[in-house]
């Protein structure tokens, strides 16, 4: 019996393939996908669009996502806006404080790749969030429409269901050893 890829999840390879484990796996994924609390890294213009996504018209809450102010309560970090060298340590620190499993959605051109403020133009901006923290989903746009952010959230849900997002490696670079909750 072939299993679709998304059914194989966290417990894959740990135990022989019995149907009940696959379902437990899906249960865990379902629970995780439908309650993604996100930390709003509202850094620049994309932050305003992120506020609009949490507003009544686009309503990210219907997907079970509630904005959180504390990194310890968040599963997802939506990096929305330009990251500067001054902000970078704070971003890394907040990411480190998020408990596992944690995901990152990079919203907008500035946090995808530097965008308007990439390395050729701006001297004080980091050209992309993935220079600092590992990113799961990139949502392009400047700023992306709220529908695009919701699409990114749906793509993240698929990724959560697969095994790729369950284990987080530490990001490259010499960022020090802060206390990351495992």
């Amino acid at each position: 019996m072939t299993r679709k890829r998304y059914e194989m999840g966290i417990l894959e390879n740990a135990l022989p393939e019995y149907a009940v484990f696959s379902r437990l796996d899906r249960l865990i994924s379902w629970a995780r996908e439908n309650s993604i609390a996100y930390l709003t890294m509202d850094l620049a213009c994309c932050g305003v669009e992120m506020l609009q996504v949490s507003g009544g018209r686009f309503d990210i809450e219907r997907f079970g996502s509630v904005p959180q102010v504390s990194p310890r309560h968040a599963d997802l970090m939506i990096v929305a806006g330009t990251i500067t060298y001054k902000m970078a340590p704070l971003l890394r620190r907040l990411y480190g404080e998020m408990p596992l499993p944690k995901y990152v959605l990079s919203m907008g051109s500035c946090s995808n790749c530097g965008g308007l403020f990439s390395w050729e133009y701006s001297y004080s901006s980091v050209s992309g969030a993935d220079k600092i923290i590992p990113v799961d989903v990139f949502v392009p746009g400047c700023p992306p429409r709220p529908e695009a952010v919701l699409h990114g959230l749906l793509a993240l849900r698929k990724r959560i269901a697969s095994r790729h997002a369950a284990v987080r490696e530490e990001a490259p670079g010499e960022w020090g050893k802060e206390r990351a909750v495992k």
Binding site: Y85, A88, P89, C113, G114, S118, W119, Y123, S124, V126, S127, G128, K131, I132, G173, E174, W175
Partner: peptide
């Protein structure tokens, strides 16, 4: 001093490479 005419953009800062 960034706004000076002869300023060269940095190679890196705080362990992050500037260039992408």
């Amino acid at each position: 001093f960034p706004m000076r005419r002869d300023y060269e953009y940095p190679e890196d800062f705080g362990g992050i490479e500037h260039r992408r």
